[in-house]
Write a protein that binds this DNA or RNA. Structure first.
Lengths: 155, 155
DNA sequence: CTAGGTGCAAATGCTTTGCATGCCC
DNA sequence: GGGCATGCAAAGCATTTGCACCTAG
């Protein structure tokens, strides 16, 4: 079990690396080490992260990469669809890696900050219908549910 | 038609004023003029607004109210349910007045910034179901659809 | 009177920008 | 080698905080 999970993460990173590499080439951007270090760091965890935690993680690993580069690289990774920005109502933006998975939404515990993910097939349909009715060409949607998680509601 | 719309807005403001007044009394907060001036300003329009536009509107009307007070008052108005905060992915938060209407969601045009509102009865059901399945006590949710509006998609 | 509210300005936190240096193509 | 990307520091915004003064209760 453990090994297969490791392999899976590794495969995810390998394919992400290819996506980034191709994207940079096709758009005439440079393949700098920094961009790949940051990508690897992001793909080595499943958590939602923000710029600051990512930056200090890199610091801790003795990489000499500036905040500006982290921000820059995050823009690039968003453009090639490898990560997604999530604005959960806080001022600080959170990001998550985007695998070849279905669209999913979030449950956020306003008490302890826990973030769970879920997906519901009915939602896609509803979005499409709303788009037609309102004359909108919908490209993406974000749905966040706020409340108390199991632990926090029992207290 | 025009008169009835004016009356309606006025009624909304009158009842909002009462809600605020009661809320302040019940919680031992002071009924300062600033709080009511800001409430009136908010209720005199139907648009989504941010702190800066609200502040400069007050400036233009020669009120001597500071940004700090606007921020403070907005917190109060949120606590008593008279306005709702909307985070549409930008860093700047937008707010809207909350009437006794049903929950509604937003369509945001990423091209021109247009914001439309809609509501769908099916969504409420889905939210409830998800809450049960995931063991979450849901208090609110926000659903935003992003894309191009009629005008922008035709260009 | 007196605590909470206000105005003002300074501080904070997150993000972007300007500029000199470095390194990919 | 030429120019884009980087590191660093400074600037930019939105929001919060500290403090002296003011005012509602």
């Amino acid at each position: 079990m453990k090994e297969s999970s490791i392999n899976h993460e590794n495969t995810d990173f390998q394919s992400a690396k290819k996506v980034l590499s191709d994207f940079l080439l096709m758009n005439g951007f440079r393949k700098t080490i920094e961009r790949f270090i940051i990508l690897e760091e992001i793909y080595s965890t499943d958590e939602h992260f923000n710029v600051e935690t990512l930056y200090s993680l890199l610091k801790k690993k003795k990489y000499r990469i500036s905040r500006a580069t982290v921000y820059n690289t995050i823009q690039v990774l968003m453009k090639c669809g490898l990560i997604i920005k999530q604005q959960f109502g806080k001022t600080t933006a959170l990001f998550e890696k985007k695998l070849n998975t279905l669209h999913h939404d979030h449950l956020i515990c306003t008490e302890c900050g826990l973030i769970l993910e879920f997906s519901d097939q009915h939602l896609e349909q509803i979005m499409r219908k709303v788009g037609e009715l309102m004359d909108f060409e919908i490209h993406k949607y974000s749905l966040n549910l706020f409340g108390y998680c199991k632990n926090c509601s029992s207290n």
